[in-house]
Amino acid sequence: MSELKSGSNLEKVLKAGHFAFTGECGPPKGANVEHLVGKFKHLKGNVDAVNMTDNQTAVVRMSSLAASHIMIHEGLEPNFQMVCRDRNRLAITADILGAHALGIRNMLCLSGDHQSFGNHPQAKNVHDIDSMQLINLVTTMRDKEEFINGEKIDVAPKLFVGAACNPFADPFEYRVYRLANKIAAGADFIQTQCIYNMEKFRTFMKQVVDMGLHEKCYILAGVTPMKNARMANFMSKFVPGMDVPDSLIDRLKGAEKGKQAEEGIKFALEQIEEFKEMEGIAGVHLMAIEWEHMVPEIAERAGVLPRPVV
């Protein structure tokens, strides 16, 4: 095993060659710690790390930094998400230092959904730097032990740095080059957007493998089980950058009454099985949105338990 960059559990699992399994958790719309901790019990022991979302869909919530810290206290490993929408480079840098100081060892770099989707559409967005530049900023802090202005850092933050990738946004033929740029900027791992169009994803992964990108970076395939056909329809129509084939919507609609959720889970399990064998895929990122209590069952049925101890 090569030298560890942060020593996070996720990094160790991936470097040891295990098929990684990460989860996701949204902080509460308030300071309700009890509610947050309640979600953790479904994730603990079933995933290698848990993404803590940062004002996701531009809806304001408890800060991902604070919620990540609470998570550590509860014995889980966070993947601290940070969006560029709400912070300039000073706040970003300060939060990265703070994250490391609080014991956070994974971070995911994102642009952030536009505020017009959220509950403060009148807000001014920041976008001082973009997600690509954020990857570069945090890895520069880690590897060169310097701020982006070149000044030395007194105890540099050591984070395992992730980035997102949406193979389904356009222009499709250039998405792989954008991924290559993120890896060149320093990304250690990638978590993809929720995948539903498997055919398109296979094409994308072939490009990834042909370019050798999977050898430079760990790629985790994004899976979000559909709860019902209505959710699939909604995601297809209203969630930006989402590609939900009609065949999946029809499959969910065709399920027996009360069995659409089970059909959604079955589809997710089939996906996970395929990802285990797919060249270039190092793990799965399970985003069970407001469905955290299903994670133990999905992990069990997907055959990814027990999680490796490294």
């Binding site: 973009d130 946004a169 356009d170």
Partner: peptide
């Protein structure tokens, strides 16, 4: 660009149009 992304497009680009 709605997000002033300097290295784009972001994940919301669809059929040549912006997510917003």
């Amino acid at each position: 660009c709605a997000k002033r992304v300097m290295n784009g497009p972001c994940g919301g680009s669809s059929a040549g149009k912006c997510e917003i």
